[in-house]
Simulated scan of single mutants.
Amino acid sequence: MPYDVTQAERLRYKRHQDAAYQVGEEAVTRLKAALALAGLTLPSLHNDGPVGCRGFVRLGGCSAALASRLAEVIAAGAQAMRDQQQ
C-alpha cells in the first residue's frame, strides 16, 4: 500500500529544499569571492540546486592551466594555515 505524503510533510520537505538551495547560493558566492582574491574564475561555477535536501555546487570544467593554478593557490593557502597554527 503506497504511503500518502501529508501537506505538512510536503511543506517541511519544501522548507528543507529551499534552505539547501540557499546554502548552495551562499557557498557559490563565497567560493567566487575567494577565487577572485586569487585572480581566478571558474567559468561554470554555479548553484546546481538541492540534491537530497543538501546544497549542491557545480564547479564545472576549466582549463588544465586554471586547474593547476587553483591547486597552487589551495596548497599555498593550506600551508599558510598550517604555519599560522604553529
Rank of each mutant, 00 (worst) to 15 (best):
Glu26Thr: 12
Val5Arg: 10
Asn47Ile: 14
Ala76Phe: 01
Cys62Phe: 04
Arg10Val: 14
Ser44Leu: 05
Leu59Ile: 08
Glu9Ile: 11
Ala33Ser: 09
Val5Ala: 11
Ala27Ile: 05
Leu35Gly: 06
Gly61Glu: 05
Gln86Glu: 08
Leu59Gln: 03
Ala19Leu: 13
Ala33Gln: 14
Leu35Glu: 08
Ser44Ile: 01
Gly39Pro: 05
Glu72Tyr: 01
Gly61Gln: 08
Ala27Leu: 08
Arg30Glu: 13
Leu37Trp: 02
Ala20Asp: 11
Val51Ile: 13
Ala19Gln: 14
Leu59Phe: 11
Gln79Ile: 01
Pro2Ile: 14
His46Pro: 12
Ile74Phe: 05
Gln86Pro: 03
Gln84Asn: 06
Arg58Gly: 06
Ser63Met: 03
Glu25Trp: 02
Asp83Tyr: 01
Leu40Trp: 00
Ser63Phe: 01
Asn47Trp: 03
Gln86Cys: 01
Arg15Thr: 15
Pro2Gly: 10
Gln85Gly: 04
Ala8Cys: 02
Val5Tyr: 00
Asp48Met: 04
Lys32Pro: 07
Val73Pro: 00
Gly55Thr: 04
His16Met: 12
Gln84Arg: 07
Glu25Thr: 13
Gly24Lys: 10
Arg54His: 07
Glu25Val: 12
Ser68His: 03
Ser44Met: 08
Ala8Pro: 01
Ala78Ser: 11
Asp4Trp: 07
Gly52Lys: 12
Cys62Glu: 00
Ala64Asn: 10
Val51His: 12
Ala20Phe: 06
Leu42Ala: 11
Gly61Cys: 12
Ala33His: 07
Gln79Asp: 15
Leu11Asp: 13
Leu35Ala: 04
Ala67Thr: 03
Val23Arg: 12
Gly24Ile: 12
Val73Glu: 06
Ala64Asp: 02
Gln22Lys: 12
Glu72Ser: 10
Gln79Phe: 04
Ala80Gln: 08
Gly39Trp: 02
Arg58Ala: 09
Thr6Gln: 11
Val23Glu: 15
Ala27Arg: 11
Asp18Gln: 07
Cys62Ile: 11
Leu11Ile: 10
Tyr21Asp: 15
Tyr13Leu: 15
Val5Trp: 04
Arg15Leu: 13
Lys32His: 01
Ala64Thr: 03
Ala71Gly: 00
Phe56Pro: 08
Ala76Ile: 02
Gln17Glu: 08
Leu70Gln: 06
Gln17Asn: 10
Lys14Ala: 14
Lys14Gln: 14
Tyr21Lys: 15
Arg15Ser: 14
Leu42Gln: 05
Leu45Tyr: 05
Ala78Glu: 15
Val23Tyr: 08
Met1Cys: 09
Gln7Ser: 09
Ala64Gln: 06
Ser68Asp: 12
Tyr13Gly: 14
Ala65Leu: 06
Gln84Trp: 01
Met81Phe: 02
Leu40Tyr: 00
Ala65Ser: 02
Ala64Leu: 07
Asp18Phe: 04
Met1Thr: 09
Gln22Cys: 07
Gly61Thr: 10
Gly60Gln: 09
Gly52His: 09
